[in-house]
């Protein structure tokens, strides 16, 4: 039983540059992030099936999860300078 996880912005770099991976259902979002080594403190917003959810939300089979990073402008541009 699985769900899809989309990473937006800099979170992609934590899942090997991919924008989508498959994750197990049954865990909370927070547990899922921990397992993937995505620091919770850079995730500003969690959307599940396009509705905002708390990080304590328990992933259901078939969910589409989006993790939205804190942005703040031009992280990459700055690093490239």
């Amino acid at each position: 039983m699985s769900a899809k996880l989309h990473a937006l912005g800099i979170i992609k770099s934590y899942i090997g540059g991919k924008s989508e991976i498959v994750v197990d259902a049954g865990n909370t979002i927070r547990e899922t992030m921990r397992a993937l080594n995505i620091p919770s403190e850079i995730v500003a917003l969690v959307l599940v099936n396009d509705a905002p959810q708390a990080k304590e939300y328990r992933v259901q089979a078939g969910d589409v999860i989006k993790l939205i990073a804190v942005v703040g402008g031009g992280v990459n541009e700055f690093r490239n300078e």
Partner: peptide, 22 residues
Amino acid sequence: SEMLKPWQNLGTTMVVSWCDEI
């Protein structure tokens, strides 16, 4: 931008929960 819809939905209030968490 993939951020357009989430941002339109919440605007600056998007960061309230994040600021609380950190």
